[in-house]
Design a protein around this nucleic acid. Structure first.
Length: 183
DNA sequence: AGGATGATATCC
DNA sequence: GATATCATCCTC
């Protein structure tokens, strides 16, 4: 299993968001690996991006975003759902990629078509906030085989408050994949 | 179209 | 301490 190295995340966020498509997200619980293929991502570009949590400044919640790349930023949204991001670019840049949907590959029974649903299916919660993604219980890896696909860019979801940033095509999907989130 | 449900940031 | 807001999901 070829785990993505920290250098993978230490690059332009939009590029990381694109290249994460087709990669595997692996969650190990009690020796069992739940694996899904990433089919939908969103890039959050740092403190100037009004849709990014980090644009509100450095707070206890966003602390991980301001740290080094290759770590998980997990937060609770609407008091109900968890969302998983991977931190990108050098320390202090405060950018990240939100994982929005997976195609089940192994040991996944429930719905993964949405950021909250994929966290539920993989047993991801706040305890994994700040977790090193080059570690053992949650990481990303290169798939064994790569099916060819086309990337499509669209506006991000749920960020209407971000004015001109709301319309930028920073959401990336594998075109036509059946496991995309609705909308 | 609207409610759930609670952490978080920001105000007093 | 109170309040407004939320990178969502589900039901109607």
């Amino acid at each position: 299993m070829r785990k993505l190295p920290r250098e993978f995340y230490d690059r332009d966020t939009e590029q990381v968001a694109r290249e994460l498509l087709g990669k595997l997200l692996v969650r190990r619980i009690d020796g069992v690996s739940r694996i899904g293929k990433i089919v939908e991502t969103e890039a959050y570009l740092g403190v100037h991006d009004l849709a990014s949590h980090s644009s509100r400044g450095r707070t206890p919640r966003t602390e991980v975003m301001f740290g080094p790349p290759g770590y998980a930023y997990v937060y609770i949204i609407y008091g109900v759902h968890h969302c998983l991001n991977v931190v990108t670019e050098p320390e202090g840049h405060a950018s990240a990629v939100l994982l929005r949907a997976l195609e089940p590959v192994r040991n996944i029974e429930s719905n993964t078509k949405g950021p909250g649903l994929l966290c539920r299916a993989l047993g991801i919660d706040r305890r994994l906030n700040g977790h090193d993604l080059t570690g053992g219980e949650l990481f990303l890896s290169e798939p064994e085989r790569i099916e060819p696909f086309e990337i499509e860019a669209r506006p991000r979801i749920g960020v209407d408050y971000a004015r001109e940033w709301a319309e930028k095509p920073l959401r990336f999907i594998i075109r036509g994949n059946p496991s995309l989130s609705r909308k």
